[in-house]
């Protein structure tokens, strides 16, 4: 009966994951390996293809609305203002051709790109929050502790969720409609060029563990339920919840990967690497805030990064 409970928990979290995250690993890997046939992503590898990228998105009509049809229009415009955005002149619009030609200088380009990444990240934080709320027992925790768990967990979760979208050559963006090459990201001016490299390095190694979507769901819940986040008021119930999810994850890995030795241990070790990546990422953002005159940080991300590490 205990194993049955753990299986039920895994199933529940997998369903919550599918409900809240529009691009699954299964779908992303299908796109990356060219199994989607006529729906191949548009490749951005230089400034010219970047400009054409928007045209591509406009012609295609974004499938976001299918996923998010239950949300208000307001939300949809926040979504489309991201990299997949067709909203020209939006504050966060990056692929908007008009804004590129109007503002001209290459310098502003990285900032605009950075802003559209922020928009998508903020939306992802909302998705992660909804996922967290579906973890059994999470909503019953002290509200201040829920905030702390999210504050410290979301960037780690974001980075883990990027891994399935990446391979050694680049990353899917805009809900899998666009593939942006690693070389292009590296060619942006400093420090923007340094932002993604550590994530590529981490992702290539993480992907070697070959987790599926149900295991990803459990791992994300484990990360969120970290009892050692600074400032937690009531650690015990968080640790108890995490322990149950850890058992479920361990069982799931044994069933799905019977010949992969120590996979559970290897996965837990990734959490150490992850914390270092987040610390470096936050420091880079804080540096950007100081050095870039025109930079504005999205209010939600600002809230999360304030006094974080």
């Amino acid at each position: 009966p205990e194993a049955a409970d753990l299986r039920a928990l895994a199933r529940h979290l997998y369903e919550a994951y599918l409900k809240n995250f529009p691009l699954t690993k299964a779908k992303a890997r299908a796109i990356l390996s060219g199994k989607t046939g006529d729906n191949a992503p548009f490749v951005i590898h230089d400034m010219k293809s970047l400009m054409e990228g928007e045209q591509f998105i406009n012609c295609r009509q974004i499938p976001l609305k299918e996923h998010h049809h239950h949300h208000q229009q307001q939300q949809t415009s926040a979504l489309t203002a991201g990299l997949g955005g067709a909203h020209q002149g939006s504050e966060y619009g990056f692929l908007g051709m008009t804004s590129i030609s109007e503002e001209g200088p290459q310098d502003a380009l990285e900032l605009r790109f950075f802003h559209s990444c922020q928009s998508r990240s903020a939306e992802a934080v909302r998705e992660i929050t909804e996922f967290a709320k579906s973890i059994p027992g999470f909503s019953e925790l002290d509200l201040n502790d829920q905030v702390t768990l999210l504050k410290y967990g979301v960037i780690e979760v974001l980075i883990i969720m990027m891994a399935p979208l990446m391979n050694k050559d680049g990353t899917l963006i805009s809900y899998g409609q666009i593939f942006m090459t690693r070389e292009f990201l590296k060619s942006l001016r400093k420090p923007f060029s340094q932002m993604m490299e550590p994530k590529f390095e981490f992702s290539v190694k993480f992907n070697m563990l070959e987790l599926d979507d149900s295991e990803m769901a459990l791992f994300l819940a484990v990360i969120i339920l970290s009892g050692d986040r600074p400032g937690l008021l009531n650690v015990k119930p968080i640790e108890q919840l995490q322990e149950t999810v850890l058992h479920s994850l361990e069982l799931q890995l044994k069933l799905n990967h019977p010949i992969s030795l120590q996979l559970f241990a290897k996965l837990l070790q990734k959490m150490t690497d992850l914390r270092q990546i987040v610390t470096d990422h936050v420091h880079l953002i804080q540096l950007l805030k100081k050095t870039e005159v025109d930079m504005c940080l999205h209010p939600l991300l600002q809230e999360i990064m304030k006094d974080l590490y």
């Binding site: 949300h71 208000q72 307001q74 939300q75 926040a78 928009s119 903020a122 939306e123 934080v125 909302r126 929050t129 909804e130 709320k133 509200l143 201040n144 829920q146 905030v147 999210l150 504050k151 999205h298 209010p299 939600l300 809230e303 999360i304 304030k306």
Partner: peptide, 20 residues
């Protein structure tokens, strides 16, 4: 609490989305 206003809102509202 004021420091994490949006996170609080996201945690407490399930249907009405915060204007991100």
């Amino acid at each position: 609490k004021e420091k994490h206003k949006i996170l609080h809102q996201l945690l407490q509202n399930s249907t009405s989305p915060v204007d991100l």
